[in-house]
């Protein structure tokens, strides 16, 4: 018994020692990472304190201890509001569609660009494709409206050229998600391609040569060398973007919406903006934010667990 005790202590001591030893060995690394840890703490953890507002009838200008606490009142109102579920459906709908298109197409595009031989042409294509990323959504929304207008919009002119009837694209609620996702794709495709292209260039050229000698054609090489080579990057990005499913922002919906399609445009952030902050109900707005964060976390952990099970790899 005593021996065991001593053994335990000794092990503890050793553990402690090695831990201290490690700390000492890696002290520069720790010091170097400290600013970033601090940054994450300051900007991502301290603001969680603000969640307390979700449980208050928050009034501006009053100190914290004078705010009135209301428990789960805001959450109850939120869960009883039909608009919350509409917003939830819209957020999910648009982000799932966005994930499907916005994820596969940049990969395909990256691979296609990678296959291009002519260097100047390759670079030109790449630059042109990511330029829209720098255009503000206000401008993009204007372009989309002009393009889709029945009043001399190019797309309707094209339809009429082929003998079709002009379509009021922006007045069809059922098309709104698609319009948002497609304009987002146009804007961000090139930008999202960059990271995959970088991953592709990191693949060892010897693999391609070996595949070539083995008689693999272009598509075989893409399938057996390029894709497996970037699969790690794909999985990490996919899991992370699933965690971001709920935070698709509201800029594009806000800019592209009009009264006819407003119901399909109301995403969670817009809901919080209009009915929370817009009504000066900061508590209610915060409650929506809390619900959104919790949902995001659930999604992220589920996605990660699924991938871990499937591939044995994990992001966290």
């Amino acid at each position: 018994m005593k021996a065991l005790n001593i053994l335990c202590r000794k092990k503890e001591y050793q553990n402690k020692r090695t831990w201290l030893q490690k700390l000492k060995d890696q002290k520069y690394l720790y010091v170097m990472s400290l600013p970033f840890v601090l940054m994450v703490f300051v900007f991502s953890y301290i603001p969680i304190w603000g969640w307390s507002i979700a449980f208050q009838d928050y009034k501006l200008g009053l100190p914290f201890w004078e705010q009135s606490w209301v428990g789960f009142k805001h959450f109850i109102t939120m869960f009883q509001d039909d608009k919350f579920y509409t917003a939830l459906a819209n957020t999910f709908g648009m982000s799932m569609m966005g994930l499907l298109l916005g994820f596969t197409i940049p990969i395909i595009f990256a691979i296609l660009i990678n296959e291009l031989r002519h260097k100047l042409f390759k670079q030109t294509v790449q630059t042109i494709s990511y330029l829209p990323h720098f255009v503000s959504w206000v401008v993009v929304a204007g372009i989309v409206y002009k393009m889709l207008s029945t009043d001399s919009g190019p797309i309707n002119q094209l339809i009429q050229l082929f003998g079709g009837e002009p379509v009021q694209f922006m007045a069809k609620p059922e098309l709104f998600w698609g319009i948002v996702v497609l304009s987002d794709l146009w804007k961000e495709m090139g930008w999202n391609t960059i990271i995959f292209l970088a991953a592709v260039t990191a693949i060892d050229p010897a693999l391609y040569e070996a595949a070539k000698i083995d008689g693999a054609g272009r598509f075989r090489r893409i399938w057996h060398v390029t894709l497996p080579g970037i699969s790690n990057v794909i999985i990490v990005l996919l899991v992370l973007s699933i965690g971001n499913l709920m935070s698709i922002g509201f800029e594009k919906q806000f800019q592209l919406q009009n009264n006819v399609v407003a119901e399909k445009a109301m995403v969670l952030d817009l809901y919080a903006l209009v009915f929370g902050i817009g009504n000066r109900k900061f508590g209610f707005g915060a409650a929506i934010g809390v619900a959104k964060s919790v949902l995001s976390l659930i999604l992220l952990f589920t996605a990660n667990a699924l991938f871990k099970k499937q591939t044995g790899k994990s992001v966290m």
Partner: peptide, 8 residues
């Protein structure tokens, strides 16, 4: 105007 409710 059919664009009455959607125009900016």
């Amino acid at each position: 105007d059919p664009e009455s409710f959607i125009q900016k």
